[in-house]
Design a protein around this nucleic acid. Structure first.
Lengths: 256, 256
DNA sequence: CGCCGATTTGACTCAGATCAAGGTTTGTGG
DNA sequence: CCACAAACCTTGATCTGAGTCAAATCGGCG
């Protein structure tokens, strides 16, 4: 029991950690900043309490706009159409950002939902504007991060517009694998934090198709799947599905 | 002949017009700026000579990065996949921006090609950074414009991921119609500046499907098509295809 | 006029959706 | 600790929207 309490205490402290000693520092907003600049960023962050699975971080239409960085856990963002259907537009791992859709107009245009118990850092838009104004290098960093967002979205348009179901799933797994590697986690062995339904929605497929594709990729020994657990056994052949043997670090796979 | 020459002269002068008297002012970067601020923006613009149909404004991989605003004509942007296929990610009308994909990394990740003889204003990235630094309101405007880009891309993900062929084409026409209206051109009668092939590619369809859909929409008297000429006869029913009778100004249609 | 690229049209095919069960895991309250 | 429900996932059978293939037609333009 004492151990448990201690562990809880440690977790709590981690939530209050500054950007300077955050392990995600090089993936997140602070990448490449001086200690000086970091302090300024630190000051505008509101560290949120953990959010639970299925909690909304924000909803389309919310006028209280912020940029969010995932600290732990994972989050999905989605847009709705007039008929009430929804399209998932992103899955966000620790160190990744969401909420840029609120930078135009006066409200968010997509919603964000926690896929599991997670914690996020929140940067209110006003404070963000102010610190960008005061610190050029932060403004520069923001420009870079938004440009990345645009390029990433373009890669998704390519995926949804031109790829077969199998290519879509392969791209998805490769993208996850690369993002695992960036976080110094195993790139070939990881847990999916989202249900099949969400993967299907994100890739523009039916759940059944995703399920069958997982079965097939396992069949031919490219991956092993056990429910949410993925093990990529043959990265080479997984890559060959999206059609590049050599040019492995292609922009497309990088950014899905 | 003299008239022709005169017309050419007038065109040439228009290219040298400042942002302050540009008719696209309220659609483009300068929206809502003071005269003071406009001058600063004006100074960093490099007004390009007209580009011809099929000319590249920039290519994926170009390290010479800029933000571009279409002054006249129209431009498409596209990304390539490892197999050499391409996906068109945007069509850009006068007053619309392109090139934000270059704001991250060190090169553009998509290419831009003129659909017809066009002219564009170029904002080199370095100058843009500088003026953003000097003038907070321009930085603020840039943030807004990039946010809009992200929201627009999300709407495209919804289109590609969830819509039927007919819904896609209807959304496309409605989007064009709205953008015509913004430019004070007829919202129900306009020319497509891109071939069927490009429309098909953009919407994730086959050319034949687009052709058949145009034929069908004409059949049921929702539109009239004559080659590139479009006349929307029944906007109400066109809208009903994407599934909203009342909630007409939905974000989805707005931003495709 | 004659060629070439763009567009249309028709016939056929197929990847992936939909429909229909059945199995498994998780959580929950008694 | 068990029973039961609710998600979630898989598998099989069938259907269909849209792709593919093939061919004709149209519209400019040298």
């Amino acid at each position: 029991m004492l151990n448990m309490a201690e562990a809880t205490q440690i977790n709590f402290d981690q939530l209050k950690v500054s950007c300077a000693n955050c392990s995600l520092r090089e993936l997140c907003i602070p990448q490449g900043m001086t200690d000086e600049e970091l302090k300024l960023v630190d000051q505008i962050i509101e560290r949120k309490k953990p959010v639970h699975k299925n909690d909304y971080l924000f909803r389309a239409g919310d006028t209280n706009r912020s940029l969010y960085a995932v600290l732990s856990g994972s989050v999905k963002t989605l847009v709705d159409n007039p008929n009430g259907e929804e399209q998932i537009v992103g899955f966000h791992l620790p160190g990744e950002l969401l909420g840029m859709d609120g930078f135009s107009g006066d409200s968010h245009t997509c919603s964000a939902v926690a896929l599991e118990t997670s914690s996020v850092c929140e940067f209110p838009l006003e404070s963000l504007d102010k610190v960008c104004h005061d610190v050029p290098s932060i403004q520069y960093a923001m420009r870079r991060l938004m440009g990345k967002e645009v390029s990433k979205d373009h890669a998704m348009l390519l995926l949804l517009g031109r790829m077969s179901a199998e290519e879509k799933l392969a791209s998805f797994l490769i993208s996850l694998s690369k993002r695992m590697a960036q976080r110094h986690w195993k790139p070939t062995e990881f847990n999916l934090t989202m249900p099949r339904q969400d993967i299907a929605n994100y890739l523009g497929l039916a759940v059944e198709t995703v399920s069958r594709l997982f079965a097939h990729l396992q069949e031919v020994k490219i991956i092993e799947v056990d429910r949410r657990r993925i093990n990529i056994c043959d990265m080479e052949r997984l890559r060959s599905i999206i059609g590049d043997g050599e040019n492995v670090d292609s922009a497309a796979a990088e950014q899905v």
